[in-house]
Structures are given as C-alpha cells and as structure tokens.
C-alpha cells in the first residue's frame, strides 16, 4: 500500500508518521537509536531568534498514563540551530519541519525569515502556545486575533508550507484554527500539551520548577482526538494530529477523526523505535479495517463522511 502523504505547497511525506516537536531533540540525538530517514518527518524542538534558557529543574514528572513537562522551550537560538543541527537533519533523508517560537510577532517572523535562506527546511510549524510578552503574557494561541497576526507575519516572509500548532487549553481550538487558515496557514497541527500541576508531597510544593507543566502521553489522547475532530470540520486544510499516540491503532483513530498525518512524542522516550514499528504496521492495520489506500481512511468518522457512507 502506498503510504505517501501529499500536503500543500508540494510537501510530500514518505509516510504519515512524524516525530513531534520537543520529543526528538534538535535532530542528531536519536540518530544512534532510530533510522531517522524512514520517518515521515521530524519536527525539531522549538527555535527562537535568540537562545532561551528554559525553566529551572525538575522539568518532568510522571503521571498516570502521562508526562508533565516544564522544559520552558530551552533552545540555543536560530543561528546555533542552523549551524549545529540543521545539517544533520538535512542529510538524514526525512522531511524537516522547524518548530518556530517567539515572545512577540516580530520574533516569530525573524525565525521564519532567517530560515528562508537555508536549504533543507521542508516546512515550518508555528507553536502559538508561547506567552506574548507584549500582551500581558497571554499565549498567542488563546486569541484568534493574535493567532491571525502571528500566522500572517510568518506567511509574509516565507513560501514554505506553514502549519500552525494549536493549544488545547482554550474553549474553541476550531476558532483559532479558522483564524490561522484565514491568515494563510497551509495546515493545522494539534494538539500541544494540556496545562497541569503535580505536587511533590515529600517537599510539600509544586513538583515542577516551572510550577505548572504540559501534560502529554496516552492520557491526553481523547482530548487530542476531540480537537482534531472539531478542527477537521471547521477548516478545509489538512490537519496533523497528535497527542498520546502509542501504537498503530491510535494512528487509525486520528486518521478517522480527520488527520491527514500524525506526530508521535512522549512514547518515544520509552520506545525510541516505536515510530518505526507503527510505520511498518500501518499498511496491515489499514487493511484489517478494510481500507485499500491511505487517503480512504482520512476523516471517515467525521459527520459528513458518515452520512455519505451511511454509517
């Protein structure tokens, strides 16, 4: 079965399974464990114009079926990323997606503009979950107008495929997705982590150095599926689904809910090679469920498609 995924602006993935941003480093780290060239793509850890120090440790805390993290988007800045990590990713044979972060609209735009001069970047993923320091620290992803402004600023400086990554910590992710698409986003990716808190009982304080953290892993999958399902109905562009994928059946669920491709994050910490196992198992899993091609499954669980098929 042909596993190729054709996305806007000529972005073509060898298969629909990509590594999620922040869980696969800036590229080289997993090289000794995973045949990166076989992945559908890699979304690198978020990159800002200048280095960000990140949050004080501890930065991770295990929760039932999940993981709470407060890394704080530590990154060495775009110049170091381009010099140290991009060459490896470019040579790895996979599709390279750069996850873009900023504290202001201009910072997002600077990263996108700087990457425009670099070969070997296949797409940009705009992480709008960052706090906007010019708007009292509320995240860009919480307000359709700010999501529009960031997307439009990035769109103005790049011809590359742009996906906007949604935060699930809002009432209507679909409204944000609509704003991003109106501003020129080619795709929507969802979801980022869910805000949570853990208590360190021994020390009688919040467990994470950053106090609150983002929940990921199998525990968040139902939330992620709900967001993908809503967004896929709200916008006409492809949706990249993620959140709690741990096995091939999870991927089928996301595809049925309307995702054209997926990203896989937290499970990689346990099983570095799980993404490859999922890729290998996907054709058989699709066949078991009666699909003879990949596009056939995308969105079959959506109301419109159910009406067509009478299910």
């Amino acid at each position: 079965m042909d596993m190729t995924v054709r996305l806007p602006r000529g972005l073509t993935l060898a298969n629909p399974v990509m590594a999620a941003s922040g869980t696969f480093g800036f590229g080289p780290e997993y090289g000794a464990y995973v045949d990166i060239g076989r992945l559908g793509g890699v979304s690198a850890k978020g990159v800002s114009p200048d280095p960000w120090p990140g949050n004080p440790p501890p930065r991770v805390w295990e929760t039932p079926g999940g993981l709470l993290n407060s890394i704080g988007l530590q990154n060495p800045g775009i110049e170091t990323f381009i010099a140290q990590d991009l060459p490896f990713l470019r040579e790895s044979g996979t599709r390279v997606i750069v996850n873009v972060i900023g504290h202001t609209v201009e910072e997002y735009q600077r990263v996108a503009a700087r990457l425009e001069r670099e070969p070997g970047v296949d797409a940009l993923e705009i992480n709008i979950s960052c706090p906007n320091i010019k708007a009292g620290g509320m995240s860009f992803g919480h307000d359709p107008d700010q999501a529009y402004a960031v997307t439009q600023a990035v769109r103005a400086v790049t011809d590359r495929p742009v996906m906007v990554k949604l935060s699930p910590n809002i009432e209507s992710p679909a409204r944000i997705a609509e704003a991003a698409v109106a501003a020129g986003a080619d795709m929507i990716s969802a979801i980022n982590t869910l805000v949570g808190l853990a208590i360190d009982r021994h020390n009688r304080r919040p467990a994470l150095g950053g106090v609150t953290g983002g929940l990921s892993g199998p525990a968040v999958k139902p939330v992620a599926l709900r967001v993908v399902y809503e967004v896929a109905q709200a916008v006409a562009v492809p949706v990249i689904g993620m959140g709690g994928i741990a096995q091939v059946e999870d991927v089928l669920d996301f595809l049925m809910a309307g995702a054209s491709a997926v990203m896989v994050g937290t499970i990689t910490f346990q099983h570095p090679n799980r993404m490859l196992a999922i890729i290998d198992g996907l054709p058989a899993a699709l066949a078991v469920h009666g699909f003879s091609s990949l596009p056939e499954i995308v969105g079959v669980a959506l109301p419109t498609r159910r009406q067509e098929s009478g299910r």
Binding site: K45, P58, R59, V60, W61
Partner: peptide
C-alpha cells in the same frame, strides 16, 4: 542525579 525523560539528550528535561 536529575529527573529524566529521554535519557539521551533529546528532551532537555534533566538539566543542572
């Protein structure tokens, strides 16, 4: 010692 995620340098969890 520090609390770890990936253990191989990819997630930036285990810092000092």
């Amino acid at each position: 010692e520090q609390r770890m995620g990936c253990g191989i340098g990819a997630c930036l969890a285990c810092v000092v």
